[in-house]
């Protein structure tokens, strides 16, 4: 009799730990051929709340890391994925991608992380300003991370899109609570395992799986989430914008009904980093 393999129990990565949904609910994930693959945690509003708390805990420490250090950690995450590219590609093919397409997506994901790793200690020099005010003051504008960012990833390019939304946010010291693709959650499960072996502190990136419709209103109304980066449909955009109004939350909502080429150079930008930054201007007199 051939050896029965040990299958992995998928868990979501929250606060640096691998957990099941607090609800104990799961939904079955099938592979491309329609066979049962595994049960995926069906996270709830409470899981989202807990993830926000984990992100809040991790935030100050992450934001205080030096830019150089954040750069090295993002680079390290790239190393971790590169080293386990095969495993990650397998997770992507589960959703129907060809092995070549999956490999290409993994490679692009690693490159995207390396791109943002290089920005950590440069975006400030591009986005900040010294302002020549007409009075004897030294006046400068610096950026600061907004805080906790909610991310809702699309189904297409489930790994690359997810990373393309998360990476610019954490580059500057934000922390993230992300909801992975509903139809293709498994790359996010594997990503969590790679995050855990990178040097990224627990709680900086928190990955949830489950159904948008169960969580979107909490993403919208949780006042501790300071911004939402999401690829969502018209109805979801409206729900998010309505909820955002309650706490004057920033929203960067891409239209799910439009096609996004996550592989393109335009899918990465210092202006994506800027979307989750606040700008602070300080005045000080110049005198003796």
């Amino acid at each position: 009799m051939p050896r029965l393999p040990i299958t992995k129990t998928p868990k979501v990565y929250v606060g640096g730990a691998f957990i099941r949904s607090e609800s104990a609910r799961v939904f079955p994930l099938k592979d491309a051929s329609g066979e049962f693959f595994a049960n995926i945690p069906q996270c709830t509003r409470k899981d989202l709340r807990n993830a926000v708390e984990a992100a809040a805990k991790a935030g100050p420490g992450w934001a205080k890391r030096t830019a150089y250090n954040r750069g090295q950690i993002l680079y390290r995450l790239g190393e971790m994925i590169e080293a386990r590219a095969g495993e990650m590609a397998d997770a992507i093919t589960l959703g129907g991608a060809t092995p070549a397409a999956a490999a290409r997506e993994v490679a692009a994901t690693v490159d995207r992380l390396i791109y943002y790793a290089g920005w950590t200690d440069k975006y400030e020099q591009v986005l900040g300003n010294v302002n020549p005010v007409a009075a004897p003051y030294f006046n400068f504008t610096v950026t600061e991370p907004m805080g906790i960012i909610g991310v809702i990833a699309p189904d297409a390019s489930p790994l690359l899109a997810l990373i393309s939304l998360i990476a610019p946010a954490i580059t500057s010291g934000n922390t993230v609570v992300a909801l992975a693709s509903t139809t293709q959650p498994y790359p996010a499960i594997v990503l969590g395992e790679m995050l855990a072996t990178s040097d990224l502190p627990g709680g900086v990136v928190n990955l949830l799986t489950g159904f948008r419709k169960e969580m979107i209103s909490t993403f919208a109304t949780h006042t501790h989430l300071r911004a939402i980066s999401a690829v969502v449909n018209a109805e979801e955009r409206k729900a998010l914008a309505l909820g955002a109004a309650d706490s004057v939350k920033r929203t960067h909502l891409l239209k799910a009904e439009e096609k996004h080429d996550w592989f393109a150079d335009t899918a990465q930008s210092v202006y994506a980093i800027r979307d989750t930054l606040e700008f602070k201007t300080t005045w000080h007199p110049v005198g003796a």
């Binding site: 300003n129 302002n131 020549p132 005010v133 007409a134 009075a135 003051y137 006046n139 504008t141 300071r226 706490s247 004057v248 606040e278 700008f279 602070k280 201007t281 300080t282 005045w283 000080h284 007199p285």
Partner: peptide, 24 residues
């Protein structure tokens, strides 16, 4: 806060960005 005045207050200039954090 979006503007911090150190050893001064309520200073404005066209070159100086103004605006808020959070619910400001």
């Amino acid at each position: 806060a979006g503007v911090v005045w150190a050893n001064t207050y309520n200073k404005f200039d066209p070159t100086s960005p103004f605006g808020g954090y959070k619910e400001s």
